[in-house]
Write a protein that binds this DNA or RNA. Structure first.
Lengths: 242, 242
DNA sequence: CCGGACGATATGTCAGACATATCGATGCGC
DNA sequence: GCGCATCGATATGTCTGACATATCGTCCGG
């Protein structure tokens, strides 16, 4: 089966890991026990065992699986997953996340981001402040177009986390970026132009600029509260629809 | 070279990933470019290319490396690392962490753990509360033995994060556990018995038990502040010694 | 009824080959 | 002399088939 046709011939180990990873977090393979054997996966994805095994290593590095000899490879339970890994987060969001998961994410953002804004107010440098300002400027320009608004929005939140000067806070950026990609899907589905959120972002920026840590904390908290309310409203609406 | 003697014959892919990962975060391989080729790694670790490649996949899943064809495998710069991965954290702490990194970790704990204590105060169940209480009881018993104290201390902080009922907070437990393993090395090297920290932990537990979110927040913040002061004192002392 | 031996089966490891992309040098034409 | 296409060297990527190793079930004997 060397170089078979061209069917399903795109990624390699990464593509296979992508599919299996998504399946695991979607609950296709239940915690403890399960997961098809390597040669079955070879057949299913039309790849050699080397590639399949490399894909499995990618997943094992993220805490999704664990292999033992004779027994086979089993999906690990949710507590073992690296929930703070961007790929794992993306997989969990892929197939329509449950409300509890969305709110967990929002609660964590409500903890981390206001604190990050306060740290950024204390620690920003000309360069990191400029990155925040640049992102905000583009948000203002796109205030009437939800599609154009999403990207600078991500950059805005990321720039603040980076401006903290704290490696761990900066590491959250990868998570927040993935999460924002979903929140706009949920929160702005029924909302109009993103213009109303611009003043809230401006308040964060200005507090950071004048090194007002408490003000930045409060402004960011207000911003996330608004997102939470939007999401909550839409989740309720979706539930009513079912 | 099938089954060579028994020398350096322990782990497999995990062991090799361990060594290379530690080397990368230690700065042996500088950001962008670098890292020996696969066959060179085979020679160096006495393993076949399959095993080496699987080890490299483990590292690539954590953002430490990136491979391209002809060019080779390069170490990625620090911003790309999954800083919130427990293994990456452990590697960074392995070879005596720099002060900045230790304080970054403490600042993050000061953001996350007080908020977690507050969430736990609101959301704990009989089972999750019992886990906190059990860990604290053992801390009291080991109040005069630093060696015995470390393990229940870890369990105490982890139990609180789990008691939040929030998946992301619970995911921090893996990080905190690794970090605590180092803080006791740094903070208690010159400290006596851990007894003085027991009342601070008790205050956290009791606030959670009576569902006093604000009190739990404040008590946990006080606890971490004390750790920060201990670490700071020891870092200064270490610097003076050099 | 219990316990040890044994075979079946999964992952783990090895070896060698070919595929593929890309960097760098070479040499051609202008 | 200079730019550009060509080609070879070299790294990772993939495939194949074999053997090693641990462990679960089963079967057999005490």
């Amino acid at each position: 089966m060397s170089t078979p046709a061209t069917i399903t011939r795109a990624g390699g180990a990464a593509r296979i890991a992508e599919e299996i990873g998504a399946a695991i977090v979607a609950g296709v393979y239940r915690p403890d026990e399960l997961v098809p054997g390597e040669l079955e996966l070879c057949r299913r994805y039309g790849a050699s065992r080397s590639v399949v095994r490399e894909a499995l290593k990618l997943l094992s590095a993220k805490g999704l699986i664990e292999s033992r000899k004779r027994t086979g490879t089993r999906a690990r339970s949710r507590e073992a997953w690296n929930a703070l890994d961007a790929d794992v987060l993306a997989w969990r969001l892929k197939n329509g996340a449950e409300p509890k998961f969305v709110f967990d994410m929002l609660h964590m953002r409500a903890v981390v981001e206001p604190a990050a804004a306060a740290m950024a107010a204390r620690s920003h440098t000309p360069a990191t402040l400029a990155a925040i300002e640049e992102a905000f400027a583009e948000m203002e320009r796109a205030a009437n177009d939800a599609a154009l608004y999403a990207d600078p929005d991500r950059r805005f939140h990321k720039a603040i986390l980076v401006a903290t000067g704290n490696d761990f806070m900066a590491a959250f950026a990868a998570l927040i970026e993935v999460a924002l990609g979903m929140f706009v899907r949920i929160a702005s589905r029924h909302a109009g132009a993103p213009a109303p959120s611009v003043p809230l972002h401006r308040a964060v920026l200005e507090a950071i600029r004048r090194r007002d840590a408490d003000g930045a904390y409060a402004a960011m908290l207000a911003l996330i509260d608004r997102t939470s309310r939007n999401v909550e409203r839409n989740v309720r609406r979706a539930k009513r629809r079912t």
